[in-house]
């Protein structure tokens, strides 16, 4: 081959690759090494925990199916507490405990005036739940299908580590069952019996709480969380728990 011929040939160096091809290759490499080094822990392209950039997960990157979540349309809450009462009734919550409650924020409007904002709170069914990590006997775990953080009461030894680990104060010890009790999105009381929503959502007169499958792009939760010009936030994002209860301002 003459040197001239060589110059005529297609280059085989990286310049010949389209950026898309390059990206694909890189991604594959990262996925492979990530998987090799422990998958979700180190992989830069991890699917399960993606969305660390913001609180709203990237489209299609919901680890569960149905990926149950709740959207709280915060400014509509009027603290009528029907949700609380419905929860107590449905899930047999004793007087000394709660699975969901309503907190109250105050914001200055200037000029000595204030507005009140009611903030419903409940278990956030985190993607990376601290309570599940610390449980010595896996008495609390993330349901593999739905992602709901559930309790297996007979397994609970009552060490209460999950209660100290939860960043949301979502757990209490229920003497009646001798186990920690918490919101399970009404999995035991309703969802498993064919109902499609939780007791608190059903009871809410102001349509504050919206429950559904975040992985379904036709669901209301999906549409609310991904709506344009919407402020979406979660509580205590700094703890890295990746919660599934989203708060919005519209």
């Amino acid at each position: 081959m003459k040197i001239d011929d060589l110059e005529q040939m297609d280059s085989e160096d990286l310049r010949g690759l389209t950026s898309n091809e390059r990206r694909k290759f890189l991604k594959m490499g990262l996925a492979v090494t990530g998987l090799y080094l422990g998958g979700t822990v180190l992989s830069l392209t991890s699917v399960k925990n993606a969305g660390a950039a913001g609180v709203v997960p990237e489209d299609g990157q919901y680890p569960y199916s149905p990926h149950y979540s709740m959207v709280i349309r915060e400014r509509l809450c009027i603290d009528c507490e029907r949700c609380k009462n419905a929860c107590v009734k449905t899930n047999h919550v004793p007087a000394y405990g709660f699975r969901t409650t309503i907190l109250e924020k105050r914001r200055s409007l200037g000029g000595g005036k204030h507005e009140t904002i009611f903030m419903p709170v409940l278990c956030n069914h985190c993607n990376r739940p601290p309570c599940v990590r610390v449980c010595p006997t896996t008495a609390t775990y993330k349901d593999e299908k739905t992602g709901i953080v559930v309790m297996n009461p007979p397994r609970c030894i009552g060490c209460k580590t999950c209660m100290t680990a939860c960043p949301y104060n979502a757990r209490y010890f229920k003497e009646e069952t001798r186990a920690v009790d918490k919101c399970d999105f009404c999995f035991n009381s309703r969802l498993s019996k064919g109902e499609s929503t939780t007791a608190c959502v059903e009871a809410c007169p102001a349509d504050v709480r919206v429950f559904g499958d975040l992985a379904d792009n036709k669901s209301r939760v999906y549409q609310l969380v991904h709506a344009p010009e919407t402020m979406v936030w979660v509580l205590r994002p700094e703890t890295g728990a990746v919660p599934n209860v989203f708060y919005i301002n519209s």
Partner: peptide, 12 residues
Amino acid sequence: TRCTTCHIGVRG
């Protein structure tokens, strides 16, 4: 609008 101006809720 401004629901909580009048709706003081159970807490209020």
